[in-house]
Amino acid sequence: MRTLARWARAEWGPLHVIVRHALTERRLRAVPMALGAVCLTAALQFTQNQSWGYQFVQHTGAVRADDPLWLALLRTPLSLFVPALDLPVWGALVQLLLVFGIAEICLGRWRTLAIAYVATLAGTLYARAAIALGPHTPLGLPTTDAHVVDTGPSAAVVGLALYLAHRYGARVTGAGVIAAMVAEVLVKNNLAGKEHLAAIAGVAALCGAQSLLSGRGNRGSRGPGRTAPAASGGAPASGGGTGGRLGAGAGSGSRPGPGRGSRSARSGARSAGRGTRSAGRGSRSASGAGSASPPVRV
């Protein structure tokens, strides 16, 4: 049990701290976008199940591979919140509340929406390319899938979960998400499952590009052959002495206690005085030794 608790803290500890702090401080005001997404999805689900609202939802938020590309791109933002008709809506609402809420707290609203859109758009574009390839290729789809409505909030949820796992080092969780989507395709080889894999591929490419750019930025900021500056007097700067420790403490935001600076100054002055006296004794000893040497007899 303790091993499981340690693993959970290592896997989800950073996420738990951030989310708990935000919810403790602001309550539901910390996740307004997630609550809005849940309400919008519930409203669209109610509307598309009515005789007067089905065509409205289909014309504004349903995306199919046989639609013109410009129309599909225009409908894609709303398609994030149009749930599938053949699945219970409560599962989609819970997924939206949890994943969108955590992402909104940890990533911010606009980044959350951007990653969700990238994941959904990857699935939409994949469907078009796969239908063009045909069912005889490994990544292809039959032409009948061109009339099937693309996946709704699930692709965005999968993409956001994978991005959060990558950003906060939850490797087991990220691997579990990928494994679950692969198992879905193996059990039920349909358009939605393959679009989930396309969403994973799109978000994985985004994470790889960000890691590559951040690595280049860190190497550029360090620069080749850059060394630490030398201290005054030609001695190299070292963090092992008192000055190095005081500098490190100041850099970390800690303040010295009262009188600590004056005591350090007095101890430095005494050390300098002892050094001067030692140098004086050394010079006198050298001169005395020179004068006391006996003359050489010829």
Rank of each mutant, 00 (worst) to 15 (best):
T124R: 07
A114N: 02
R171E: 07
L133E: 12
P142F: 12
G169Q: 00
L85T: 11
T120R: 15
A72R: 05
A65V: 02
L74F: 14
I115W: 00
L125H: 06
G174D: 03
R64N: 10
V118M: 09
D145C: 11
A116E: 02
A175M: 13
P153F: 03
L80A: 09
P77Q: 11
F56W: 14
T144A: 15
A155H: 03
G101P: 03
A72F: 06
L164D: 11
H136D: 15
L85R: 12
D145I: 08
V148Q: 12
A129R: 06
Y168A: 09
T151F: 05
L162T: 09
L73M: 12
R64L: 12
A146P: 03
A103N: 00
T143G: 15
V172K: 12
D67R: 06
D86F: 05
I131A: 01
A62H: 11
F81Q: 00
I105H: 03
A62K: 08
V82S: 04
A103I: 00
Q95F: 01
V157C: 06
P135Q: 07
P135S: 09
I102E: 04
A103F: 00
H166K: 13
G169M: 01
V63E: 09
F81T: 01
R171D: 08
T60K: 07
G169Y: 00
L74S: 10
A65D: 01
G152Y: 05
Q95E: 09
P77W: 11
A84W: 05
L74Q: 09
